[in-house]
């Protein structure tokens, strides 16, 4: 399965819905999408990972890159994920301390801290 990306605006947040596999081949597409959104002035991003089947360190690197970009504009990057096998990768790399991870898009959109 390839990577699927779609974006929508909810209030002042931009929700990026990601589906499929994020790996060394597909991660550049996600990077482009995040860079484009930030360049267009969207600094509060919610990345919905509920449709992601596979994530590796290349994908993690892209998410960290996105976080750095939005933070440069006082923005935020929140993740939505309930899948244990994906959450595990964030835990073993220590990235659960770096990203706010929410159980639903509504929750992520409502979060302000």
């Amino acid at each position: 399965m390839d990577l699927s990306l779609s974006t929508r605006t909810v209030g002042d947040r931009t929700v990026v819905e990601v589906g499929g596999e994020i790996d060394v081949y597909t991660a550049p597409k996600l990077r482009e999408q995040l860079v484009e959104l930030v360049n267009e002035g969207n600094y509060h991003l919610v990345v919905d990972m509920e449709g992601v089947d596979f994530l590796d360190s290349t994908g993690l690197g892209v998410l960290v890159g996105g976080l750095k970009r939005v933070r440069a504009h006082e923005g935020s990057l929140r993740l939505v994920c309930n899948q244990e096998r994906i959450l595990k990768i964030f835990r073993i790399t220590g990235l659960t301390k770096v990203f706010p991870i929410h159980t639903s898009v509504d929750d992520a959109v409502a979060a302000t801290d």
Partner: peptide, 17 residues
């Protein structure tokens, strides 16, 4: 040192995984 990590450090992150 995930917080310090840039996209270039994916390699180290991959090995850490």
């Amino acid at each position: 040192a995930a917080e310090e990590m840039g996209e270039d450090a994916e390699d180290a992150l991959g090995l850490a995984v």
